[in-house]
């Protein structure tokens, strides 16, 4: 299992993501710089980490979504390679058009930084197969622009197709229908504002994020 973490100028969760991937796979991921136009060969899983790529200039994730490496990420996603975008990574995936919708300023205007309860809405995806449908899990959030927006038609389609992976159990940031994470239509791209990579070690307050990586990286029995 070869994994990659894409690193943008301003990424700040890339090392946490690397620790999560190495914990689960036993191998350190390739850290791939945004200026590269190709991924290393044989990558089976790509993570876009949290942070403030390009200082959130223009819009969160806007510049990163147009960086050279995103062409290779899009190509890999189209081939079915699992792609996980967390927080700023989710913003990048929506800006790049790999996921529908947009992430706007939190409705309360505050930066929200705390552990929040989530409901697992879809336990059938390759990322969420380690959870039970409807299960309540606790995952930290830390963001200013996590207010998920899409038009009603898109939201209905996402719900109808089981593409809402996670929902906030209580409102956090004004997100439409309390959506915390969405899948692409093929189910191999997941974007989510909460940080599963920050919930893999009991010493850090919880391990509810671990099963996401275990499922996606294929190490569940």
């Amino acid at each position: 299992m070869k994994t990659a973490v894409i690193v943008f100028p301003g990424s700040n969760c890339d090392r946490d993501m690397a620790v999560a991937l190495e914990t689960v796979t036993g191998h350190a991921p390739a850290m791939v710089w945004h200026r590269d136009s190709e991924l290393p060969g044989g990558i089976d899983f790509i993570a876009l980490p949290g942070g403030f790529s390009y200082g959130d200039y223009l819009r969160s994730g806007a510049m990163a979504a147009r960086s050279p490496i995103l062409g290779a990420v899009s190509e890999a996603a189209a081939r079915g390679v699992p792609v996980l975008g967390v927080c700023n990574g989710f913003q990048v995936l929506t800006e790049a058009g790999l996921l529908p919708g947009a992430l706007m300023r939190n409705a309360g205007l505050n930066f929200v930084c705390r552990t929040v309860p989530l409901t697992v809405e879809n336990s059938q995806s390759l990322f969420t197969a380690g959870y039970r449908a409807g299960e309540a899990i606790d995952i930290p959030v830390a963001h200013h622009d996590g207010n998920y927006f899409a038009d009603a038609e898109t939201l209905d389609r996402l719900e109808g197709e089981g593409r809402v992976a996670f929902r906030y159990a209580a409102p956090v940031n004004g997100s439409a229908r309390d959506i915390a994470g969405v899948l692409n239509d093929a189910g191999n791209v997941l974007g989510m504002m909460p940080h599963p990579e920050r919930a893999i070690d009991r010493a850090h307050g919880g391990t509810d994020g671990l099963r996401l990586f275990e499922a996606a990286l294929g190490v569940l029995a």
């Binding site: 223009l58 819009r59 806007a62 147009r66 929506t94 800006e95 529908p100 919708g101 947009a102 706007m104 927006f149 899409a150």
Partner: peptide, 9 residues
């Protein structure tokens, strides 16, 4: 369309 505006919003 490609960069300066996000036409979703």
């Amino acid at each position: 369309a490609k960069l300066l505006a996000n036409t979703v919003i």
